[in-house]
Write a protein that binds this DNA or RNA. Structure first.
Length: 776
DNA sequence: CAGTGAGCGAGCTTCCGCTTGACTT
């Protein structure tokens, strides 16, 4: 039995540390928090200065049992949870739950998992910092009070099952407001002039820095240039440099994996978790850009041996984010000499990204020479400008360049190339000059990763919660991640070449979106309600303000109960006032106008099952309803769109003497026939689907259903073998079971099937809270 | 997860932050 017990948060960390500490130490893990507020009323005694009651979380009972038995046998217990607010609280909860004796318990902290850091930590123990623990309690209790008082109001006033909270409600607000900005944006057109010149057989592009507001101005300018000659008026060379980005934090890893690998944030975290558990990378939930001395030395030797000493430069990065707690290192490879790892393709790609980013951060600046050429036009005071860039020394660019979220302007790639040699005064041959109509663009919709970036900038959420938050707002049906086709738009392109002016109208695609976050109508109604009644809590800077108070508590400058009291009084009063607001006022109908034939009012509102349009008043017996389509909003659906919606359900024809109707339901467009439902296929439209197509659809579905059933057993008709979306599976009552690899579904005997059922735990009892939203 | 409707209403839902498996029809 070991003399010393060390408790850390993560089992993978425990394994590594045990290797550093030797025989006298046993290192185990708590798997994060072990206690929390229970769900019910007894969690917080509001009248008794917010006194919390904690309970061991259900899934930690077993962990605590094991920890207790280890602690019993140890001489000294080292509480080594993370060196931040949450970590301090974990240590305190452990001490309480395990009933650890103060004299045999030590609190140790380290911010990097290196032998040196661990040994030093063991040599310098301290006690639990109760101010820091209290700051965590304040954070926890504030979040509970906000979340569990706001959510029930939403159930009563809008829809059951909804939720609100300090983090998620601001995330939703960002998306709602961005959508409205986009909706309100009026594309303003202007005209951009680009020219192609030729010097000794080489061509290069120049641009007029000023854009013309009207077509006439651009046309006049181009026509004037037909008579002009061009010459180099000025030539400037300036050395510039580029510096590498800091190594990854959780948020920057999610952003780059999204831009370069097209991963969702949940996918990034799940792949990173695998790399971490395999010992390939350091901890993946971090807000720190710091590298340990060991890591910097290892990076140095890897760079020097692969690229040469002139490619190396030591850099310490300071973390930009004010809310950072920096309990860990940046995300980096554990072994810099490995530029690649084994594992599946995604693990390899993510590892490579992490390796490159960390290595590049310790590499020399790239040195460039930027050339700017100003081109005079003989009959105009305006100048054209051409930019060129030459890399003199590639430095870190040899390995890695960070992408940006900015969408590139159309055909602007000519700006960064090599320019042919030229001299001041030299005449230039114009090959062609274009005047192209361009349109102003609204701010782009958020992607999962750009939303994380924004939240981090606002100090909202933590590395461990970015992915779950994104998943929660989608699960609550506040936000959908979607791709949408763009719409064609005409633009003008004028051109002069060979002494001729030409004016053409061309077509481009605009507004196409790929995997962007769109708000739902529910999000808009909920957001407006919260903004109206709880402007303080839903303010973008609410978190930053309370964080300041948590910091005061942590440094002993403020009592946590006073802090909560100061917030709760006003907040709870708003809650009580809001209880009095009527449902009608919260979720009010929007009057679109009068029906063109009947003259009845047409409304749009949020119904129990989603957004709808309605002809007639609520009291009317013969009122009609139709659901809004995906992408339509209550706040701006037009009469024309509304009338279109009432054309469904539509009679399509007859099959087997029974009527077929087409409509759009909760699960998309469908055909109804003989009280059965058949979903339309992609590309089929309920407004236009023909009788023949509908019949084919029904026949295909029947055929698929027939194939679905593989076999049943006489011994027990409740057990079936079926063909599902992912191949054959066993269905027993309400539970499903996987068929192990190497077994043929058709040939399974009753005994074998029973054995499979018994060997697998009941399905559907526990649900993952971390993973990506599962599409059914 | 269900399975195409639009207030009978039991009893339920819900927060944020730490962690990792198990498992999906």
């Amino acid at each position: 039995m070991s003399k010393n017990l060390v408790i850390v948060e993560s089992p993978a960390k425990a394994k590594t540390i045990e290797g550093y500490l030797g025989k006298d130490f046993k290192v185990v893990s708590s798997y994060g928090h072990v206690r929390d507020l229970p769900k019910g009323d007894k969690a917080i005694d509001i009248k008794n200065r917010f006194k919390p009651t904690y309970e061991v979380t259900a899934d930690k009972k077993e962990v605590i049992k094991n920890l207790k038995s280890f602690a019993k046998d140890a001489e000294t217990v080292y509480l080594a949870s993370d060196d931040d607010r949450e970590g301090e609280a974990i240590s305190w909860h452990l001490k309480e739950v395990l009933k650890l004796d103060e004299s045999h318990t030590k609190r140790i902290v380290f911010r990097e998992i290196t032998k040196n850091a661990i040994t030093k930590a063991i040599e310098n123990p301290r006690g639990i910092d109760y101010d820091l623990v209290n700051a965590q309690q304040a954070r926890r209790i504030l979040d509970r009070l906000v979340g569990f008082e706001l959510s029930p109001i939403l159930w009563k006033k809008i829809k059951t099952g909804l939720s609100a909270g300090r983090v998620q409600s601001v995330a939703v607000r960002l998306i709602v407001e961005r959508e409205r900005e986009i909706e309100a944006h009026k594309a303003k057109s202007s005209y951009r002039i680009t020219a192609l010149f030729e010097v000794e057989g080489k061509t290069f592009q120049a641009e007029l820095p000023k854009k013309f507001e009207t077509k006439q101005e651009a046309e006049d300018f181009l026509k004037n240039c037909l008579q002009a000659s061009f010459s180099v008026a000025n030539l400037e060379k300036k050395p510039t440099k580029k510096t590498p980005a800091a190594p990854f934090t959780t948020s920057t890893l999610q952003q780059e994996a999204s831009r370069k690998l097209y991963f969702s944030v949940a996918q990034t975290m799940s792949v990173a978790q695998k790399l971490y558990e395999a010992g390939k990378i350091t901890y993946m939930r971090t807000d720190s850009t710091n590298l340990s001395q060991d890591a910097m030395a290892a990076a140095k030797s890897a760079i020097e041996s692969s690229y040469g000493a002139n490619y190396h430069k030591s850099r310490q990065f300071t973390t930009k984010s004010e809310s950072a707690q920096e309990a860990h290192e940046a995300i980096r490879p554990t072994d810099f000499s490995q530029s690649q790892v084994s594992g599946d393709r995604n693990e390899q790609r993510l590892y490579e990204l992490i390796w490159k980013r960390a290595i590049a951060s310790q590499m020399a600046d790239a040195e460039l020479e930027r050339t700017t050429i100003t081109i005079a036009i003989s009959n105009s005071p305006l100048n054209l400008v051409a930019n060129g860039e030459v890399i003199k020394f590639d430095g870190f660019l040899k390995v890695y360049l960070e992408d940006t979220d900015d969408e590139p302007e159309e055909d602007e790639d000519g700006g960064k190339s090599l320019l042919p040699p030229m001299a001041i005064g030299q005449g230039l041959n114009l090959q062609e000059m274009k005047g192209r109509e361009t349109f102003s663009r609204p701010a782009p919709r958020y992607t999962e990763a750009s939303l994380v970036k924004k939240l981090e900038e606002l100090g909202i959420g933590r590395p461990s919660t970015y992915a779950p938050t994104i998943s929660t707002i989608q699960k609550r049906d506040y936000v959908v991640k979607e791709s949408r086709d763009g719409t064609p738009r005409n633009y003008v392109e004028m051109k002069i070449a060979n002494g001729q002016f030409k004016d053409t109208t061309k077509t481009e695609n605009t507004g196409a979106e790929k995997n962007k976050l769109f708000p739902t109508n529910t999000a808009m109604v909920v957001n407006d309600f919260l903004v109206e009644h709880f402007p303080n809590v839903i303010d973008f800077h609410f978190t930053a303000r309370v964080e300041k108070e948590f910091d005061d508590i942590a440094s002993g400058g403020q009592d946590w109960q006073d802090m909560i009291d100061g917030f709760y009084g006003k907040f709870h009063k708003s809650v009580e006032e809001t209880e009095q607001v009527s449902r009608q006022d919260v979720n009010s109908s929007r009057l679109i106008g009068q029906h063109p034939t009947s003259g009845k009012n047409v409304y749009a509102r949020l119904g129990r099952f989603g957004p709808l349009v309605q002809i007639g008043e609520n009291e009317d017996e013969d009122k009609q309803f139709a659901s809004l389509k995906k992408g339509q909003f209550i706040e701006n659906v037009s009469m024309e769109d509304a009338l279109e919606l009432f054309k469904l359900p539509r009679e399509v024809g007859y099959f087997e003497d029974k009527k077929m109707t087409a409509a759009i339901g909760r699960f998309g467009p469908y055909i109804r026939h003989d009280s059965a439902f058949y979903s339309l296929e992609k590309g089929q439209d309920p407004m236009s689907i023909s009788e023949e197509e509908a019949i084919t659809l029904i026949q295909n579905k029947r055929e698929a259903d027939a194939k679905k059933h593989i076999k049943t057993f006489e011994e027990n008709p409740e057990i079936q073998i079926l063909n599902g979306r992912w191949g054959p599976y066993i269905k027993f009552g309400k539970n499903n079971f996987k068929i192990p690899k190497g077994k043929e579904a058709e040939q399974l005997s009753y005994a074998e099937t029973l054995q499979i059922i018994e060997s697998q735990p009941d399905a559907g009892k526990k649900k993952g809270r971390f993973g990506a939203k599962k599409k059914s």
